[in-house]
């Protein structure tokens, strides 16, 4: 029973990795990262159900808070980069390459 939930989590996580490494639209990349966070959350909650302990739920709450903080900051950076470059392509955002 728990194994099937964890398998769903693995599938979602792999889809998130595929989205990050194969897409160039910055919003799609960002939402793929959110998808990976959600997959990790699902595995936390499933394992909390397996062990009947509540720690996994608290950890899932923490992950959601971190995701909210990340969303606020990342979207601010996206707005700034869009103002500077007028593009949404992650290949254009290579300012740190030197």
């Amino acid at each position: 029973m728990i194994q099937s939930y964890l398998t769903v989590s693995v599938i979602l996580f792999c889809l998130g990795i595929v989205g990050v490494i194969s897409r160039r639209n910055v919003f799609t990349v960002f939402m793929s990262i959110e998808l990976m966070l959600n997959a990790a959350n699902l595995s936390f909650v499933a394992l909390a159900r397996l062990h009947e302990s509540m720690d996994g739920h608290v950890l899932a709450l923490m992950v959601m808070a971190v995701a909210a903080a990340e969303a606020a900051l990342a979207l601010a950076v996206v707005i700034l980069l869009h103002k500077h470059k007028g593009k949404l392509d992650t290949n254009v955002f290579s300012l740190l390459k030197g």
Binding site: F30, L42, V45, R49, M64, A67, A68, V78, I79
Partner: peptide
Amino acid sequence: LYALLNAKLIFAIQLIVYAGAIMSLIIFI
């Protein structure tokens, strides 16, 4: 899926915070 796993609080927070707040922020941007 969280509701099926008896995680009532996480179910509500997933709907309100994730599907509600974070996604509306992304769609707004």
